[in-house]
Design a protein around this nucleic acid. Structure first.
Lengths: 166, 166
DNA sequence: TTATATCTGACCTTCTCTGACCATAATAAT
DNA sequence: ATTATTATGGTCAGAGAAGGTCAGATATAA
């Protein structure tokens, strides 16, 4: 499988990501196995670049699981998590609110969910509007109450999406 | 100078705007992709000039949507947005103004908007969740305040959809 | 003149990529 | 068996390569 000569290949990370995703698509297994050193040499980069790609593009949040073993004959396995595509997101959403709801972090989350095609751009913008601080002015709520209500509305609305699926 | 009286001397912003619009016209995609640095150097200006043009001439209000990514191999994507037959609905929604917000009637409206393909089913459900009475319990708001806030949230969220178009 | 629009430059944030150094497993040597 | 060597993969700090923001200077319009 060649990657050289492709046009519109902006950077190494994108190339490697695409390559791995092709492998996964072609594989009949639930996972693929690579060798870090080998892959790095295929793309003419330092081995740690592979770790970077795995961290950025094949994280749990993005629906992948990575296992590895060091030493002679070591390997890296990359699983695609098919089942329950949305369940991990439920967990991320729950974990994001420690004690108090944080709109800024939630906006980041929405961005990522859109990148991952879990929600559409319109849905992301809609949810952003729902957690916009300005909207909650002048209803006699304390800061704390606003955060709680934002969280409640966000959770209820998001659950609606996760429940239905695409 | 003689040319001053002839016609408005186009400024940098106009030139860049025109250039981008040509690219969009020639593109077969729904969007075009540029590099800020590269475009700036083509027009011999500072990169932030590009941001200025995008902000002024390619805003949502004008029917464009801009996405970007930083870092090595970064890019800026400019989408042309189609706002179809959305204005009448905006007016319907505004006409809710003045009176007391009525969740039941609004649910009807959502249903119709979905039938008319103005919004998706997921979006309708999302908005339904936002105006669900139960959600607003126990935040120390009066009935009247809840209605006002529901209305506010609904309008803001819906406007987000109408603004973007499909 | 005053208000608005344009343009620049300094500084910031995010994403990518490398290289030095660390940890672990298999294998060879003792 | 124990130890040394070799072959993997992991981590982290820092350089580099984009794009973003904002205050202020300059130009244009009212």
């Amino acid at each position: 499988m060649s990657w050289e000569g492709q046009t519109n290949m902006p950077n190494l990370t994108d190339c490697i990501e695409e390559y791995i995703k092709k492998l996964l698509a072609l594989s009949t297994e639930r996972y693929i196995e690579i060798q870090r050193r080998e892959l790095a040499s295929k793309f003419a980069c330092v081995p740690s670049q592979i770790n970077y790609v795995l961290e950025r593009r094949f994280s749990l949040e993005r629906g992948y699981l990575v296992e590895s073993r060091r030493g002679g004959g070591g390997w890296i396995r990359i699983y695609r998590i098919h089942q329950g595509h949305v369940q991990p997101w439920r967990e991320v959403i729950n974990s994001i609110n420690g004690r108090v709801f944080e709109p800024a972090k939630t906006r980041q989350l929405l961005k990522r969910m859109h990148e991952e095609k879990i929600i559409s751009m319109r849905e992301a913008r809609l949810l952003e509007a729902v957690i916009r601080d300005r909207v909650y002015d002048s209803y006699g709520m304390s800061r704390e109450q606003v955060r709680k209500l934002q969280h409640k509305l966000f959770s209820e609305a998001m659950e609606e999406l996760l429940k239905v699926g695409y």
